[in-house]
Design a protein around this nucleic acid. Structure first.
Length: 658
RNA sequence: GCGCCCAUAGCUCAGCCGGAUAGAGCAGCGGAUUUCUAAUCCGCAGGUCGGGGGUUCGAGUCCCUCUGGGCGUGCCA
């Protein structure tokens, strides 16, 4: 049973006749802020009293009486200005948990009308190695798929691969000019990756050199501006003088930043130029940037050679990223990348044109949208299409093929404006029937508060990130196993397996436990911490549950098949754990209300803490009576299952021992 | 310039649609182990929720404004 749902239904009946819109009021029934207020509290009486023009406490008492809660609550009291505090009967907890124990959905109610979601996430460029920037989309998107499916909705997960853009132009150009045939034959993925990096660095060098004069100019301008402000005589007015000082400070800071940027650029150039072979290559390929774009144009135009190379490279690139997905435990129903939509783009533009939605401007085909300064460009002056065009084609395809109720885009918050425009354009185009959501997330930052990079300023590869996490996890596993009082219990292979599970879990959990909208600071130390809100803490709780069953010599199946007997909640720690277990449905609902997996991590942390307290306070195997032992074993069993399921919904695995 | 986002304990962060005395972890301090995994538990200390104004019975949460920071901003994705 979903207790909160049941309480709301009781109050819905009680509110009949008092208000025409009970839903907002029912939303105000929630878990109690503090244990001393009970288990749940209803906060709507103050607001309802206002509407009715009656004293809030009277309204609260009246509605509480009409809700007929006696069978659910052992105590219902009106407190403060009109809060209704509710304390559940222990029998209600016991029957709720008994039902959850035999329910594959652990008490989470089935939806009356399942909906269909298309979830667009991960979407890496396949021509270059995945990096830290892909972790959030991949992990959050996967968790949302799992959560929605568990709730009973239909989900189509779609990896909208970047398989048709500039990155492929780089690889093709690299292959044509720099390939090492032997290495390509031996290890195509590594060689393609090398070619990508080489071309990328050559283009980067040329751009850097081209950019240098501008950087120098900016640095000079800012420095002059800062000096000018610093030399300004202070204003006589105090407030004005303060403002002046602040402006001078700011100008100085900007000047310093510009100078730093210039210095860094010069250092970068010097570093590149310290290798004569690189300089020679750069000189030989002076217009490599344009040449790469030309390769892309040829590919898009159907050039036989480039298309052949693209078809040859794709399987290698896909194998590379799939290896990472496998390690992360992430799968997709579809992987329809940009290339899939290529043939549909001209028609998208033609169709929108035919409907009178477009207007030509400076040679580009545009959709002008109300509320936006800049139009959405769907065909460039040179005739090429853009990602906006592909995104529109993708919406049309998805709507026609899957008829979804909603499409979710799990994409970096920096693209918010793009999606605002895209969704507005889609509505204009006639696709207003499907709900379109941008599930935005923040940036992964380094210790310096800037986007996470290696010390030399390169992006951090995702595979290396996982390896490092697993390596650090291994050290922890090893240390703890060595320290066990009865001697270590794992083989080297077991240690490695545990480390892989714990390390990957730490990485994913660290990401999922953040509010997705905020940036967060990446730290191995934090994510692999042994306590606090970390994956290891959850996994440890699960392992402890399994440990109890091993010690008790009971397995879950025989426990459940055994003679019935209800769960007791005499001890505060037992009751607190029972209540937390009964709230699993609320946690699922809360996580999906605004697509925030961190709501589930908050719940799991609360649950496992309560389990730890229970573990300390309440002996299970050595309980005073068989009845109590059985009751506690049932609590442990459900805890294990909820933790395992909760982590599974986050894409995280458990281990029996650690 | 315009637009969006952010500012909560020393640090990293929660805080749901406005609800009672703002919560965790880390770091700090003090306890607990002959006991089912101490990868743990219990306790102490730590706050002008960036400043100011407003709406409300009630504001960290909503509105206005200022300050500081991040991001985006017509032919990249």
């Amino acid at each position: 049973m979903d207790i909160l749902g049941e309480l709301r239904e009781r109050f819905r009946t009680a509110l009949a006749g008092l208000t025409d819109s009970p839903n907002p009021l029912l939303e105000m029934i929630r878990p109690a802020a503090e244990p001393k207020f009970g288990d749940y509290q209803a906060n709507f009486a103050m607001s309802l009293a206002k509407q009715l023009g009656r004293p809030p406490r009277d309204v609260a008492a009246d509605v509480a009486a009409r809700a007929r809660l006696d069978d659910l609550c052992q105590q219902v009291e009106v407190a403060g200005p009109g809060f209704i505090n509710l304390r559940l009967r222990s029998e209600v907890l016991a029957t709720t948990l008994a039902a959850a124990l035999v329910d594959p959905f652990l008490g989470v109610p089935r939806p009356a009308a399942p909906r269909t979601f298309v979830i667009d996430f991960s979407a890496p460029n396949v021509a270059k190695p995945m990096h830290v920037g892909h972790i959030r989309s991949t992990v959050i998107g996967d968790a949302l798929c799992r959560l929605l499916r568990f709730r009973g909705d239909r989900v189509v997960s779609d990896n909208h691969l970047g398989d048709w853009g500039t990155q492929f132009g780089m690889v093709i150009y690299g292959y044509k000019h720099f390939r090492r045939p032997d290495e390509y034959a031996a290890n195509p993925v590594a060689e393609l990756s090398r070619l990508y990096r080489l071309v990328h660095s050559l283009i980067g060098y040329h751009e850097l050199v081209a950019e240098l004069p501008t950087l120098k100019q900016t640095a000079d301008d800012r420095s002059a501006a800062a000096r000018r402000l610093a030399d300004q005589p202070p204003a006589s007015d105090k407030a004005e003088a303060k403002k002046q000082a602040a402006a001078a400070q700011k100008a100085l800071r900007q000047a310093e930043e510009a100078a730093k940027a210039l210095t860094e650029a010069c250092e970068k150039r010097a570093s590149f130029e310290s290798r004569p072979d690189q300089v020679a290559l750069a000189a030989q390929h002076a217009s490599i940037g344009q040449a790469v774009l030309d390769e892309v144009v040829r590919l898009h135009a159907g050039d036989a050679e480039n298309l052949r190379l693209w078809r040859e490279f794709m399987p290698h690139c896909l194998r590379e990223i799939h290896a990472i997905y496998e390690r992360l435990g992430v799968t997709f129903d579809e992987e329809l990348g940009e290339s899939f939509y290529h043939g549909q783009l001209a028609d998208v533009v033609a169709d929108m044109e035919a409907r009178g939605l477009t207007r030509e401007s400076d040679g580009a085909m545009c959709v002008f949208l109300e509320g936006f300064d800049a139009p959405m460009i769907i065909r460039k002056r040179d005739g090429a299409f853009l990602y906006a065009t592909t995104d529109l084609a993708t919406i049309r395809y998805r709507v026609e093929r899957w008829k979804p109720d909603a499409i979710l885009y799990v994409v970096d918050h920096r693209q918010a404006e793009h999606f605002d425009k895209l969704f507005a354009a889609a509505r204009l185009w006639g696709y207003g029937g499907v709900a379109l959501h941008h599930i935005a997330f923040g940036t992964v930052l380094g210790k310096d508060g800037k986007p996470y990079k290696t010390r030399s300023g390169d992006t951090v590869g995702l595979e290396g990130l996982i390896d490092e996490g697993v390596r650090k996890a291994f050290a922890v596993v090893q240390e703890n196993d060595d320290r066990k009082p009865d001697g270590s219990e794992f083989t080297a292979e077991q240690r490695a397996q545990i480390a892989e599970t714990v390390g990957v879990a730490a990485l994913k959990y660290a990401d999922l436990s953040q509010n997705r909208t905020s940036d967060y600071e990446f730290s191995y130390e934090k994510m692999l911490a042994l306590d606090g809100n970390t994956a290891a803490y959850m996994q440890y709780s699960y392992a402890r549950v399994r440990g109890i069953f091993r010690k008790a010599g009971v397995d879950s199946a025989t426990l459940l098949a055994g003679a019935s007997g209800s769960i007791q909640c005499e001890q505060p720690a037992e009751r607190a754990l029972a209540l937390a277990l009964a709230r699993f449905p609320e946690a699922i609902a809360e996580s999906l209300a605004d697509f925030r997996p961190n709501q589930l991590t908050v719940y799991l942390y609360d649950l496992t803490r309560k389990f730890s307290s229970f573990f300390e306070a309440c002996p299970v195997v050595r309980a005073e009576s068989d009845e109590l032992r059985r009751s506690r074993l049932l609590l442990c069993e459900l805890t294990g299952r909820v933790v395992e399921k909760g982590l599974e919904l986050l894409g995280i695995r458990v281990v029996d021992k650690m």
